[in-house]
Design a protein around this nucleic acid. Structure first.
Lengths: 287, 287
DNA sequence: GCCCTGTCATACCCGGCGGGTATCACCGCG
DNA sequence: CGCGGTGATACCCGCCGGGTATGACAGGGC
């Protein structure tokens, strides 16, 4: 009556994402009619209209939008339950697992800090093994929510810490990265407004939440690409100071004091009780 | 294979909490044998031992403890999905519900602030109705997680903001509340150490996470009881300044500068996308 | 206007599995 | 040694989740 099975949530998410019963059924590996019936039962049990069936395709109602959000969160939680329980299944003591930790990091971000953290933790008595899982910056939050990772190095303001516990580890300013020969490369500092308005050198754009904001600059997919485009004099970017470590000889970095500071956090699921994780956090706090 | 139904999670939580298959089955409204079988299937599918069956009763393994935590979180998420979807089912527009908001507050806490917030929000154009749901301080987090409430007034350091988004609204110092006639009531300020060591006047204890830390002072269950015990000269307490509003004539309040400041936050589930909630937060941020 | 196509809904059947009852195996205890 | 109380096993049944076949209906091309 007032409880949904994860099966029903999976079905609804598939339909809500595909907006097409046939494709959703195919994705779920089942036939279309039982899927239609399941969604109807769901709507009847919730006494809520979730989908608008126009003869041509399907649209979400407001309640449907809400359920899509909530169902994804609930499915993530269920998947996390499986993953974390399986991982805890090996060696553990009462009160929490003592196994490996999976640490999700945006590839190449905060490299120095990460090395220091791993070294310091490895030197601790009875420290656990840490698996470093490189991934995209948007992926980190998903990995943490659905249990594929236990802890992540996140960077505000790009990552959202919503839904996680966290410990701030370091803050740094940002620098504008220009082609070495550019006239502005000799400046002591630049303002954000100046960087945005360099004639003939549009600001690079990277995806936020999967899509790009419109603008003149090139769309960046990875750091190597960005480095190359800057070296070629096609774009300019504002990045954290620690990015100096991967700059090329053809690059110049100029501090941008009015850019928002970037804070590196260690973040983990809010309700985590793992003793191993607690050890890592303690180490990190002492850095 | 790698997905659990909420039914299985419910079953496991019941067994893990009762530590007794018979009682758990009764609580679930079913017979014991199918429950035993379901838990065995769960363990086989996860390939993890969750329970130690000693001839006399049952104990949780480490993995079982982990699953208990995770399962509770996942069930809360599923319950929240139902509640929020049902509430969104009424009047709504695209992008989020425009219905009532349920605001969970610890009874009588931050009364002035709450009144100001509600008044300011009601004065906004197209503000929604706000239902104030008074509850205990530990209950707030649960209500928010399982969807019975949309937003809460929380107080650090007593509440944990882990897992929620929040906006700090106000900070205040703490005061010691003594019987009016007590010699120390005339002091300008007191230190925490002094309050703790008043001869014949032990510090009141309130429950943290459902249980009381041991100590000489009386165990407090509600504010009226606390007020009475202080007035009778049986105990002393350290409370936020704003509590002056409910003090009696027989009470005296003395500032305690070295007590941790109490910050009142507006908190809501991390992934919330409600437009109505966004309006309330905007109003709160302007207070 | 016609039919064809693509959509979701309906009708009906079947097998698996979730749940019930009866019973067992085992241990502690008086 | 029997008794009570635990969880596990054996067996049966009915329901419901899923499949196939088909219907209803709207839009588009000719």
């Amino acid at each position: 009556m007032d409880t949904l099975e994860t099966r029903e949530l999976r079905y609804f998410v598939a339909v809500a994402e595909e907006l097409h019963f046939g494709r959703a059924a195919e994705r779920l590996g089942m036939a279309q009619p039982p899927l239609s019936r399941a969604i109807q039962q769901l709507e009847r049990r919730l006494r809520v209209c979730l989908l608008e069936r126009n003869r041509r395709g399907v649209r979400l109602t407001g309640a449907g939008e809400v359920l899509l959000q909530e169902a994804r969160a609930a499915l993530d939680a269920a998947a996390a339950a499986v993953r974390r329980t399986r991982r805890a299944g090996g060696a553990d003591g009462p009160g929490g697992p003592r196994g490996r930790l999976v640490l999700a990091v945006k590839a190449a971000a905060s490299h120095e800090l990460l090395r220091k953290l791993l070294d310091a933790y490895a030197a601790e008595p009875d420290s656990a093994e840490i698996e470093v899982l490189p991934c995209g910056i948007r992926e980190q939050e998903e990995l943490l929510r659905d249990g594929r990772a236990d802890v992540a190095l996140m960077h505000t303001p790009w990552n959202s810490l919503a839904g996680f516990d966290s410990e701030a580890l370091a803050a740094e300013g940002q620098v504008a990265v220009l082609p070495a020969g550019h006239p502005l490369a000799a400046r002591e500092t630049l303002s954000l407004a100046e960087v945005r308005d360099i004639p003939g050198l549009p600001l690079a754009r990277w995806p936020t939440r999967g899509s790009y904001v419109p603008g003149p600059g090139p769309e960046i997919h990875n750091q190597t690409q960005l480095a190359q485009l800057i070296a070629l004099g096609r774009t300019v970017a504002v990045v954290p100071e620690s990015a100096r470590s991967w700059l090329w000889a053809e690059h110049a970095a100029v501090p941008v004091p009015d850019a928002p500071p970037v804070v590196t956090h260690l973040a983990w699921p809010a309700h985590s009780r793992s003793l191993t994780l607690a050890g890592l956090v303690r180490t990190a706090a002492r850095l």
